[in-house]
Amino acid sequence: MNRETIINLLIALGLIAVPLWAIWADEPFIITLATKVAILALAGVGLNIALGLGGLVSFGHAAFFGIGGYAMGILASHAQNYTPMMEWPLLIEGTKSMPVIWLVAVLASALAALLIGVLSLRTSGVYFIMITLAFGQMLYYFAISWPAYGGEDGLSIYVRNGFPGLNTLDPAQFLALCYAVLFVVLFLSSRLAKSAFGLALSGARQNEDRLRTVGIEPFRLRLVAFVISGAVTGLAGALYADLNRFVSPTMFSWHMSGEIMVFVILGGVARLFGPVAGAALFIVMEHLLGGISEYWQVFLGLTLLGVVLFARGGLIGTLAGRKVTHD
C-alpha cells in the first residue's frame, strides 16, 4: 500500500468518525456540515475528472451543479404543489423520490455537458476557461429571469425528498446516503483513472501529438470525459438542493464554479481524494475562521496562494509526495 492510499483511508475514516462523534455528542450542526462536505466533495470529484485527468480547466461547472439542483427543485415543487409538469402530449408529474430525481439530474447535466462540450472543446487554454464561464453565466441569468421557478428568489421545498427504505428527514440517515453516493463515485472514479479511457485521457493532457500519433483523436475522449464530469457534478447539485431544501440561481453563479475548482486545487488536482480533502478543508476554514472574522476568505485566499506557489499537489500531494502511476 503506498502512502497516498494510506492517507486516503485516513481521510475516509475521519469522514466517518467525525459524524459518529457528532451523533454521540448530539451535535446535529456537525452532521449537516459533514453532509455538506460530502456533497461538495462529490461536485469536486466530478470536476476532477475533467480538470485532473483531462486537463480541461472548466470554469463553468456550476452549470451542471445548478442543473442538478433545479432538476430536484422543479420535480419536487410540482410534486408538493400537486401540479403536473406537463399534461399534453403525455402526463408528466413531479416527484419526491430521490432515485428518480438523481436520474433526471444526471441525464440533464450530461446532456448539457454534451452540448457545452461540443462547442467549447474546440478551443483550449484561456479560451476554454472563458467559454465554459460564459455558458455557466448564461444559465445563471436564465435562472434569474425565469419566473415560473422562482426567478431570483429560487425555490423552496418544504420537506426533503424520500429514498426507499430510509428516513431522509433524519440528518444521520441523509448523511449516510450522501456518503454512500460519494464513496461509490470515488470507487468508480478510481477505476476510471486506471482504465484504458483514463490512460488515453490523461495522455492527451500530457501530449496531444502523442495521442494522435498512436491513432487516438483527443476530441472525443475529452467530450466523453466532460460529459461524465458534468453528470457527477449534476448529481452533487441534486443532493445539495436536497440538503438545503432550497434551490436558487446562485448555484449557477461563477462563484460556485470557482468554489468547486478551489476544492480540487486545495486538495490536490488529479488525486482521487483531492476534492474530498479540499472540500473538508474549505468547510472547516469557513466555519472556524468565519467565526473569527467575516473576512475569512482572505485566509482562504492566502492558503490558496500558498498551495499554488509551494504545494502544487495540494493537501494530498504535500502529504503523500509524488503521484505513483505505476502498479
Binding site: 477505476r191 482504465s195 483514463g198 487516438i216
Partner: peptide, 11 residues
C-alpha cells in the same frame, strides 16, 4: 482500439 473502456485496469 477500445479506448472507451472505463472500468478494467488497462495495465
Amino acid at each position: 482500439g477500445g479506448v472507451f473502456r472505463f472500468f478494467g485496469n488497462v495495465l
